[in-house]
Design a protein around this nucleic acid. Structure first.
Lengths: 174, 174
DNA sequence: TCGAAGCCTGCGGATTTCGCAGATCTGATC
DNA sequence: GATCAGATCTGCGAAATCCGCAGGCTTCGA
């Protein structure tokens, strides 16, 4: 989860227990957990026994691993849709430029229910945020009154969605 | 199960009856189906009986509706993760400017396995594409050798991800 | 009026989930 | 090297869930 180089993985006395965490707090996943995730990326409701057969583990072991992955927040099993199908008529990606530290702005964006996706980036924007709204008024309100009003926000640029062409969640399956 | 976009729906002339389609080919969802989707956005593995109790339907009815929603491609139930956690070290959003028609370029991007997300936008980019790669070399290769090489691509701008702050799939839950 | 289609309910039987106890393995400590 | 603690896996009933199917109700058009 961190852009930090993983190079310095020396003998850290602490990271013995648990599933070995890097200093960024990101759990280290072994090949079996990756295989389980891959199975669930194909079908989030696949039975544990079927997954177990595919990855070479018992049903109970798969169940425990899945539960742990969910608890740790490594993955979530959810229904995804095209928002346009579900009644949200306006979506946009908003590029944000920030003065000073990024985190307060990123946290404020994260707290907004209309914001589905927040990522800090390197490039001509500091933060990219995806906004899902019901109509133009709503979108305008979120961008102009709420996002641009945040302290530290220097400027924003919006990209209104015209058509969603692809949406996948299957890295690992390739 | 398919890497097919959730967005694209088959404009089949036959299914005029069915659950009533608008001319965009998008199935019209009633309040109950929306409520079911909402339940599954909270927990993709929630039992049908529990969903039925929440939306006022029998277990079998929920099951049939869910199956239909999946078949129609309205929603998918999948595991989602932060790719950085799962071993993909470099991600970027790529803004693309196109000369002429957009669709050939958008389709070419959609066909690339490293591209997870493609959307046509209004604004200073014509297309936004999210790229998931294993390392810097891979990312560089995709952006410079593959994307920029597409016929019709006038220019691109990349935003390398530093940290994913938020990722939700819960429209309707608000 | 009739038939077809869509959607719902109820109901067993097969399957899956769930909780738990015991076995195994690994690393840390002395 | 002996031992202990923690984590993980397996096996196994009991409970819950999933699944297919038959039947009822309603709508719509011939």
């Amino acid at each position: 989860m961190q852009s930090e180089p993983v190079a310095s993985r020396s003998a850290d006395p602490r990271d013995s227990r648990d599933s070995r965490e890097s200093r960024s707090g990101t759990p280290q996943l072994d090949a079996v957990s990756l295989a389980i995730i891959e199975q669930l990326q194909e079908d989030g409701r696949r039975p544990y026994a079927a997954i177990g057969k595919a990855v070479g583990l018992s049903e109970a072991a798969v169940r425990q691993r899945v539960q742990k992955l969910l608890d740790q927040g490594v993955m979530q099993i959810v229904a995804v849709t095209d928002p346009l199908t579900v009644g949200f008529r306006r979506q946009a990606m908003v590029g944000v430029n920030v003065e000073g530290v990024l985190d307060p702005v990123a946290d404020a964006l994260t707290a907004m229910p209309e914001v589905e996706y927040v990522v800090m980036t390197a490039g001509s924007f500091d933060i990219l945020a995806e906004v899902v709204c019901e109509d133009d008024d709503h979108l305008l309100d979120v961008i102009n009154k709420r996002i641009r009003a945040l302290p530290g926000v220097r400027s924003t640029e919006s990209f209104v969605y015209l058509k969603l062409k692809k949406q996948t969640y299957m890295w690992g399956t390739r």
